[in-house]
Amino acid sequence: MKTWLYQHLYAQRQSRRWFWGSPLRELVRLLVLGMLLAAFTGLSLLADDFTQPPGEVIWLEPTIVVFMKPEASEPEVRAVWDTLAARSEVRTFRYVSRDDALKELQSAPGLQGALSNLKDNPLPATFVIRARDTTPAGLTALKRFLEAQKQVDRVQLDESWAKRRETLLDSLWGAAKDVWAFLGTLLVVLLFDNTVSLWQREREEALVARSLGATPRQVRRPFLYHALAQGILGGTMAGALLWWSIHVLNDMMPIVNALFHLSWNIPIPGVRGVVGLMVISGLANVLVGRLALIYLQWQQEPE
């Protein structure tokens, strides 16, 4: 046990020596790793935020507006309310009574004079609905269901916008997935190359160790410790970069939000998120490093 511990301590010392042996090269590699990881994780965070209901980009989402018949009584409107509340396809809905609709219209600039001459309120009560399934097919099905309801005058849905939106989102998703896959591949290649370069730099030590009867595991150990340390430090750098860039983006958000009537904020990864990133990055680096060592293993093994 003691011997094993000493062997591990020596391997750690060896990896630290390699690290400080060429600090500039290591720093550049860490920066590249950090940036790639930050881009990879940042894209995942954005995509997640884009599709999850609380942060969804609502201005892109099509809405269904249900206009009630003017003669619809309060219990009949209430029945529609209850139906909407019970339907799982309906994510949220907002009721605008006839009076509220008139007030909204009266508050619009230039219409006050024209509306003051009206004897009766000509506006119908409406329900503004956001559906859970925002595909054209899902929206059309919900529209048909709503049209069949009693005392519903008509249902408005911009189907062409729903289709355009669907196509736009599909294209965006496809592009994001491609970029994500590209970044992921680039990350694996970088991690692989890190170990291969380290091996080429320090192969003399590794080959001497092998000629002295060191087991393959012993020879691999400092390389894997190096990969672990590099992964953890790369993860830390990625966390710091993400934190900084999301802060910068969120600082610009009030302007965007004011322009588009939004309340959108990208969530900043907390301590748990950053620690998770460090751990995952460390383990991934060890795994890819191990694969690189299998690839390299004893290609030029001395006799």
Binding site: K2, T3, W4, L5, Y6, Q7, Y10, E204, E205, L207, V208, A209, S211, L212, G213, A214, Q218, P302, E303
Partner: peptide
């Protein structure tokens, strides 16, 4: 078994002492 090959494999950028100590360090000797 101590093995001395021809030419001997040494870590050229290490000093003599570090080279001599290498097998012991690999074996986990204090």
């Amino acid at each position: 078994v101590g093995w001395v090959s021809r030419p001997p494999f040494l870590v050229s950028y290490w000093n003599v002492e570090a080279n001599v100590a290498y097998p012991l360090r690999l074996s986990g000797v204090p």
